[in-house]
């Protein structure tokens, strides 16, 4: 019985052993650590009946928090696109002086623990911070506002855009630009017609990754965000608040919506990417 199960699972015959062992180990590991908790997430909201779930959905504070999360993540990811393109160009094509150092620094937001980024950004952009003080003199308040959320999400999302675009830019042949110039294209036409379009799929990927990260981000945002319900409260924080109120159903509802929309956005980004990259598919 057990043997036939493995035989059924296996599609191609290879001479390598270890299939049963590794499949078993992987299923136990991923099953207990991912599939099992995921089931709880999917099932829990309906446990108290459909009525409770519907009631949980009638929560304007939740929708405000979801809107704050998604819109801030989208704005931050969009703002990262031009900066990311510039840095990717500097690293891959522009022979930026001190490139090795810049290259290491780009990964800093990924490496820095979110709590560290959180308190650092909050202090840096706070009213007396190194960057917050000059900005407040210009009449711009960053900390404890929506702008703070966007700044924090830009910080954590930047490496995704740079790292998605950089290899594509590096592999783009140099003679494309020369060919375009010889055919009479002016500098801005070279950029808009020859350099940017092949990068678009990578830009979309980078945007999608930065956005997905931004939607769920917690640690680097909560210190700078102010966390006022309906105004500067992000969805992950609302989950924590609901848990502190022992409202598991409410917390799970927010979590489930967050997860579903994130996955939908990733799917959308994936299909957009494929559409933009139609030309790259070999026959």
């Amino acid at each position: 019985m057990k043997h036939s199960f493995f035989a059924f699972m296996r599609k191609t015959g290879t001479s390598l052993p270890g299939f049963r062992l590794t499949l078993g180990a992987t299923l136990v590991w991923a099953g207990f650590l991912v599939a099992f908790p995921l089931c709880a997430l999917l099932a829990r909201p309906w446990q108290d009946g459909v009525g409770a779930m519907v009631a949980a959905l009638h929560d304007s504070r939740m929708f405000a928090a979801l809107w704050t999360s998604f819109s801030s993540a989208a704005i931050a990811a969009a703002c990262n696109v031009p900066f990311g393109l510039m840095l990717a160009w500097a690293l891959a094509r522009g022979q930026l002086p001190g490139r090795w150092l810049a290259d290491a620094l780009i990964d800093l937001p990924l490496a820095l623990p979110t709590a560290v980024s959180g308190i650092t950004l909050a202090t840096l952009y706070g009213p007396n911070g190194w960057l917050g003080a000059p900005l407040s003199r210009l009449g711009i308040t960053v900390s404890y506002t929506r702008a703070g959320i966007v700044v924090a999400l830009m910080f954590v999302g930047l490496p995704f855009v740079v790292r998605a675009v950089e290899p594509v830019l590096r592999n783009l042949p140099h003679d494309l630009e020369e060919a375009a110039v010889l055919l009479g294209a002016r500098p801005w036409q070279v950029v808009t017609r020859v350099l940017v379009p092949p990068l678009l799929p990578a830009v979309v990927t980078g945007f999608g990754l930065a956005f997905a990260r931004g939607v769920g981000e917690y640690g680097s945002v909560i210190f700078i965000a102010g966390n006022q319900p309906f105004r500067s409260e992000i969805a992950p924080l609302l989950i924590v608040v609901r848990l502190q109120e022992f409202d598991y159903a409410g917390a799970t509802a927010v979590a489930l919506i967050l997860l579903v929309i994130s996955l939908l956005v990733l799917l959308l980004v994936g299909s957009m990417r494929r559409k933009l990259a139609l030309w790259s598919e070999p026959a």
Partner: peptide, 11 residues
């Protein structure tokens, strides 16, 4: 000008 690797615009 015809480039060695043609330099066709891929997109």
């Amino acid at each position: 000008f015809v480039f060695q690797n043609y330099a066709l615009f891929p997109h």
